[in-house]
Design a protein around this nucleic acid. Structure first.
Lengths: 315, 315
DNA sequence: TATCCTTACGGAATTCGTAAGCATG
DNA sequence: CATGCTTACGAATTCCGTAAGGATA
């Protein structure tokens, strides 16, 4: 080419440096993720560096170790470019196939199992041709797939990372409850207290999940150290062990279904634990198909497309 | 290629649709502007349309007439992508050659001739290796080259178009003055009034230039219809004709230099005309080399890089 | 030694541009 | 009929992937 100074990078190069960063500077992995060859990846990086006239990556010998100072800036811009290019595809499909496509939701077990089914049922009848992908993940993973751009919507209770690229909206507020087998002493002593609960082994969520922080907080404030006999990733597991008599369970109250969970009793815990709020989360700057907004509206009627867009526009 | 759904557009395609819009949908011109062939342009557009699965341009037969509804969206995104890709080049040069490069300023005659020389002199000593390009243009053209991205900084007095993509900062405030040949009757009658001025033929700026609106406004409010004997693009021309005795001139007062303009006298007009404000303007979202910020600071010391960036970040 | 990056090189795919064909005003 | 867009097709360029070479932990 004639060195005319026009930018001559290409999208593949940008994808490659983005992926290289995501894969911790392992070109082999990056190549696999992009379904291409290492050699191509290597060359593309060198070409881009040459074109920009600087080194993007810090190298020791032949290994890539990290980003240089300018490299950090370059990657940030590359991510913006790629985000917009993906938006372009989305916008196009919005027009060409407005009610078909894929809605990808990353969420925790609790939401997927107890909250979303009703919403999803409604959504499916309204948009039968939208393929729904439910990606079950931890809050941290949810934040990651959001910023990566592989997910439209994240739904979780706990910290969706205070990442500037992620925008959250309150979904609904709930509190924990206590589940016990029928005939359990806690059922006959009036409203249970933290103290009375702590007399039994406790089974609840793993750390960082479904408001576990609220539970720890409550006991800590009361100066009580409960005997956490077991912790699990989801309420179904907890309930199963409570049913076996291994202890009392503390779960999100919406995870209790009187009809299904006949072998258990739920005691409201609103007076014991701070309420938790589950949130909807989207990637700032990502174009969302109109049905994504419809889905959000099904979750929270006040969250119209206009209001979400407005929130995104503000800092 | 395997139709894997990954975006497979390239920058050239985006440049082409952007340029096609700018050239009023004339592919021949767009091709020339991008230094490539019409056929390539034509094919690239069709390829992109096929990839996106929609028509970007409205066609009648073989002529392109405008943008389709989705086309408008696509072009907006394309412009963002290209803006960012250009930013990437800028950022790179910022690092690789921090104090060399080009500063492109689009401005009107008045600024170029009377205000900027002092600033530019200072700038040149501070940044001897920065090439300075002064693009003299009308306010409307200035707005255009700013949004096009071919200019770093715009400086003008009059409406820099209320384009959302352009960010303006007040530069300095000034008012018009009246220039007359020595011995002119206006010099001996105390402070001139609009009435007394209107007794003579008036020579001033063309419409839309250098605060001409303020002049018209003043006369109109006073219910006076001046005899605009001649209008010109710049003060030098006006002064020349005033010197020939064709009338009294109304010019920006900073365009009068007592040392140079010995054949004329300036009468202050601050009591007659509303003051005008000249502005600095930049393209929102465009990365500016650090020396551009230094230049702005030379113009208005309070306008530091940080404050400009802050203004840009806010809506 | 196993992993990982770079370079070399041949083949595939894309892009480009000339030229001819055709539509529009 | 002059301008402008499209298509065709050969040439130039770029991109890709295999394979070999060399560096690193």
């Amino acid at each position: 080419m004639t060195d005319w100074g026009l930018p001559d990078m290409n999208f593949q190069q940008l994808r490659i440096i983005r992926e290289t960063v995501r894969r911790n500077f392992n070109l082999t992995e990056a190549a696999q993720a992009l379904m291409t060859s290492q050699s191509g990846v290597s060359k593309h990086i060198r070409d881009l560096e040459e074109e920009l006239g600087l080194e993007i990556f810090v190298r020791r010998g032949k290994r890539l170790l990290g980003l240089t100072e300018p490299g950090r800036e370059v990657v940030v811009i590359a991510e913006r470019v790629l985000l917009e290019s993906e938006n372009m595809m989305q916008v196009s499909q919005q027009f060409s196939k407005s009610d078909t496509g894929t809605l990808t939701i990353a969420t925790t077990h609790t939401q997927a199992r107890y909250t979303l089914p009703a919403v999803i049922a409604k959504f499916k009848t309204a948009y039968p041709d939208v393929r729904l992908v439910l990606h079950q993940a931890s809050p941290k993973e949810i934040a990651q797939v959001l910023i990566e751009g592989s997910t439209d919507l994240g739904i979780a209770t706990d910290t969706l990372e205070d990442n500037a690229g992620i925008l959250t909206f309150p979904y609904y507020t709930w509190s924990h409850g206590v589940v016990v087998p029928p005939g359990h002493p806690l059922l006959s002593a009036g409203k249970p207290t933290l103290e009375s609960i702590a007399e039994h082994p406790v089974i609840t969520y793993d750390e960082g999940l479904t408001g576990r922080a609220r539970i720890d907080q409550a006991f800590e404030r009361a100066g009580i150290v409960p005997d956490i006999a077991m912790s699990a990733l989801d309420a179904d597991v907890i309930k199963a062990y409570v049913e076996l008599g291994l202890g009392v369970g503390i779960i999100a109250s919406m995870a209790f279904d009187p009809a299904r969970d006949r072998g258990l009793e739920l005691i409201d815990g609103g007076h014991l634990f701070e309420p938790s709020t589950s949130s909807l989360a989207i990637r700032r700057g990502r174009f969302l198909r109109s049905y994504v907004y419809r889905f959000i509206e099904l979750c929270v009627p006040e969250l119209t497309e206009a209001s979400v867009r407005r929130a995104e526009a503000s800092i």
